[in-house]
Design a binder for these strands. Sequence first.
RNA 1: UGAGUAGGAUAAACAAUCGCGCCUGCCUGGGCAUAGCCCCGGGCGGGUGAGGAAAGUCCGGGCUUCACAGGGCAGGAUGCCGGAUAACGUCCGGUGGAGGCGACUCCAAGGCCAGUGCAACAGAAAGAUACAGCAGGGAAUCGGGCUUGCUCUGGUUCCCUGUAAUGGUGGAAAGGCAGUGUAAGAGACUACCGUCCGUCCGGUAACGGGCGGAGCCAUGUAAACCCCAUCCGAAGCAAGACCAGAAUGAGAGCGACAGGCUUGCCCGGCCUGCUUUCAGGUAGGUCGCUGGACGCGGCUGGCAACAGCCGUGCAAGAUAGAUGAUUGUUCCGUACGAUAGUACACGACAGAACCCGGCUUAUCGUCCUGCUCACCAU
Length: 112
Amino acid sequence: MIFSESLKKYRQFQFVYRNGKSYADKYLVMYVKENGTDRNRIGVSVSKKVGNSVVRHRVTRLVRESYRLQEAVFNSGLDIVVVARKTAASVRYFEIEEALLHLGKLHRIIKV
RNA sequence: UGAGUAGGAUAAACAAUCGCGCCUGCCUGGGCAUAGCCCCGGGCGGGUGAGGAAAGUCCGGGCUUCACAGGGCAGGAUGCCGGAUAACGUCCGGUGGAGGCGACUCCAAGGCCAGUGCAACAGAAAGAUACAGCAGGGAAUCGGGCUUGCUCUGGUUCCCUGUAAUGGUGGAAAGGCAGUGUAAGAGACUACCGUCCGUCCGGUAACGGGCGGAGCCAUGUAAACCCCAUCCGAAGCAAGACCAGAAUGAGAGCGACAGGCUUGCCCGGCCUGCUUUCAGGUAGGUCGCUGGACGCGGCUGGCAACAGCCGUGCAAGAUAGAUGAUUGUUCCGUACGAUAGUACACGACAGAACCCGGCUUAUCGUCCUGCUCACCAU
């Protein structure tokens, strides 16, 4: 991804959870916190409640893919954590993409 | 053709666009003023990228570190015989038993004459019996018979004795069944079957068969403790090795400059400082990391598991974790329909994490092979 890296460490996730703002819709929850750089960092979290390993992996990929394709419309300098909800287990790609953009609008981090 | 049985293969396909990990070729930027076979990147091209169970983590082994003179106890696992193997609780071939007409399937299949424990309920009695029954004898009593008191005979009640055929209970009632025998019965005796002992033959063995003998002294349970035999050191790739700039510690040198303490001052001493070397091991990184008890094909040996030889191939290696998304066509499935076709849909179970050999569990379908039984035809 051109403008972004991924969040990796447990502590980084915890920092965003504690200090960031969150919005949720039917499929996803999004936490956002400014990180003070000119790049975005995105982390995806899918718990065991969502499904078995294959399902979780698929949801992770869908979220990452839809972020990758829509990367340019997001503002820079943010740490974003996307948490999948249980309902996301049996969802198609476009519904994930739609949910991601919807939450971005709620956070007002989408470029107009 | 139908029903069944044993085993195997496969795990939707193709194309376009965007994207990811690893390997590799070429070009190129920076560290760096020059050069490099050093370090950090970028671009383009090529190759490659989940499973039959990758799962559960239940066994076994390799590998790594630690421990280790030898022996024993404890603990755990296994348990008919032979073989295969690196090893196994796995596999193959047998033996015995159970089920099935059969192909075939299933078995935790050593030892309760070392000891201890348990055996509910039922039943008379469960390391033991006599409830009912059957039979003999005696007594009392009521009858019958006739030669009128009997060495005749029947019933009922009680007592003594014999018995374990029959009955019911039970998982199990102390070999089975038939006959002889007897008052009634009983391996008391006899034949056959079973069991045990001896012996001979076959087999590496488990075991099987023949012959002879013993009437058969005694329940079940060892996935009850236990006994016997065999095997087992512990922990695991977050193993472990290396690099290393954090913390910390040690030594040497520099300076005689600054601050603090030691006494008001000086000298002296101590601490803080700077440079450097070593130890150390944090963040981070590299290796381990995939060429192996490897895949495929053939030959040879073996009933087989498997082994040997030859040829050939190299086929994921991530580290918060790549292997994906969209679109189109075809295939499959479900529903409707005579076909054509139309509609529906994340197209079974499920995602590598050091590597192998197994076991177990999950699973939509499709295809193939061997064999068995029944029916039909010739």
